[in-house]
Amino acid sequence: MRRFFRLYKTFVVQYFKQLMEYRIDFLTGALSFLINQLTNILFISIIFDNIPALSGFSRYEIYFIYGFSLLPKGLDHLLTDNLWKIAYFIVRKGDFDKYLTRPINPLLHVIMELFQFDALGEFVTGIVLLTYASIKLDIYFGPVQILVLLLAIIIGTLIFTSIKILFAALALWIKRSGSILQIFYMSSDFARYPVTIYSKPVKFIITYIIPFGFTAYYPSTYFIRGNSPLFALGIGGLAAAILFIVSITVWNRGLSAYESAGS
């Protein structure tokens, strides 16, 4: 474990060096994710200029849920973005072999290799929006609330990461799974708004099948509605743990089934 952190530090330091080299690229990346989020927030704001509440949720409550959804998403984006490359090109080009020849767990190596600063665009928007909504809604943040918030973010991040590992692992068999991953990742869009606006089947799917509901809506209800956090943390934590175990199992199976595509 200590070796892991030492290695990770080395990788991150390398990334900072790159960042300094390609400052404009970092700015483009972060700015693009920021603007992407801003347009969606503007959309919410225009809707609320015309209606007082959306299915019983006020403007700031929706901002809260939306802002919350960006935290696990942004954190996962920051840490594990390389999984996209696995799914899209690395396996197909035959470059995956290198991870198997190093004295380190291949999955950890894949994750450590990229530290995606672009994600700050999402993450910072999320924090600003969450703070703004919390002030407007007069939400009190004591030690318990902060603990719930942190746990919920960890659970949410784990859900995102597990989904990515699971579908990136498919590439170990079929060489290219990026677009399949894309579909499942995009279904997290459903989680940015209250789960209650969706029809029953959609609600069921994003709660129990692809549990993105736990990345924003369920934990948010603790803060904005005073609901018990047990469902969000308990069932959400369980869902995240199961998903994580499944994805690791599939990944390991994939590793043993892997045949290089290299020429």
Partner: peptide, 24 residues
Amino acid sequence: FLMNLWGLNILKGSIIKFFSGAII
């Protein structure tokens, strides 16, 4: 001029989506 094509593409996508009325 830029190496971060991925970021540029996302940027372009959100600008176009917004100003072309695809979101609102």
